[in-house]
Design a binder for these strands. Sequence first.
DNA 1: AATAACATGATTGTTGACAATCCTGTCGAT
DNA 2: ATCGACAGGATTGTCAACAATCATGTTATT
Lengths: 220, 220
Amino acid sequence: MKANAPEDEGRQDAAARLREWITGGRFMPNERLIETDLAQALNVNRANIRMALAMLEQEGLVVRERNRGARVRLVSDAEAIEIAEARQSLEGLIARQAAARASKADCAVLRGIIAEMRKAHTAADYLAISALNGRLHAEIQRIADNATVTRLLEMLRSQIVRQQYRAILLPGRARASVQEHAAIVVAICARDIGAAEKAMRRHIGGVIAALKQAIALKVG
Amino acid sequence: MKANAPEDEGRQDAAARLREWITGGRFMPNERLIETDLAQALNVNRANIRMALAMLEQEGLVVRERNRGARVRLVSDAEAIEIAEARQSLEGLIARQAAARASKADCAVLRGIIAEMRKAHTAADYLAISALNGRLHAEIQRIADNATVTRLLEMLRSQIVRQQYRAILLPGRARASVQEHAAIVVAICARDIGAAEKAMRRHIGGVIAALKQAIALKVG
DNA sequence: AATAACATGATTGTTGACAATCCTGTCGAT
DNA sequence: ATCGACAGGATTGTCAACAATCATGTTATT
């Protein structure tokens, strides 16, 4: 039975933890991922690491070359924009479906997040804003209840977390972001599917513009 | 060196061949995928099969349960529609980008495919229509030159090839499909990005409607 | 000094054996 | 006849050793 002792925390899916390590910035883009090292660090055997790397390659987080092992995938500026555009399209869809399904309780939650966002903004706490950002989108996805699109968005998001950070730090972007999010929530709570999609597309449009600006400025 | 003799054709990516087997209908939905059997059939070792199955799980083609192995994923009717809706969104984006980038040569190719489609339609050759269908979408994706979205669409398509078949066979659907495709090509060749996206969304909308109809009729 | 052949260590790829788990059918008790 | 315990086979999960390949530095030759 191998009782799940405290040292057995390694039983959690290796791929999930490795994904967190990569998106969390523990490895640099293009950094080599040595199988034996990872196996030791994650306390699983090499076969599991190989499977995890294969899965993360499918997700676009990792690049593997035969006999050369795996590296963290470097997503170019152009790709980051491609990804953000795809996200725009899918987030629009999810916002529309959320608007069609949102209950009053759902709306209360969304409004609560917006309120917290405003607070974080006046406090100039950009880290908190970023976190609330994620929470709001996750909540909208939960409301929309569309596993397919949620999965795709999760994939896309994980590929550009790094780039997203640079964008939110541009002057004035945080303020605009809060307003855009507020508009999305208003539309969803009004059950206006057209407005919800439009507001969401406008929001991600803002993200894309900020991203392009950050790229042009060579910020980050 | 293990010279690549003819019997070495098994060196091709096992995941790719297994994917073809699944989308090609060689296995039924929910059918168990036994690792040793697959290893023998594909002439690779079990470790490779395990990696392939992990990858195909990420793609949504396969479901794996711990200690219970892998099965071909059964996508429910509701999921099929979810997937088609996601496709609608992304195909719209790709059509828009194709319209922005299409050269005259590209348009000639697209028009050629439409011509062949019309021929196949008058000949009532539904298999050919379906194939041309795929070629047209692939061509549009090539023109749009967006690797990210192309990859996502490929994932989605592979999950519902089976359902798509039932839809095209509905009375009148083939004719409508040809017309919708023609409209897309016209818009792309006119470099009208708005019209291209709209035409594509309308087309996939038609697919979705047909799919719903097929589901309601319990066809397939 | 520049280059090529070569040796060496590091890393990935492959294989087979074994352990753990699940699934199925049989047997016995009620 | 129904139900549960249990045995046996089938299948998956784990592991370690080995082979193949790559990367790096060294040496010999010009």
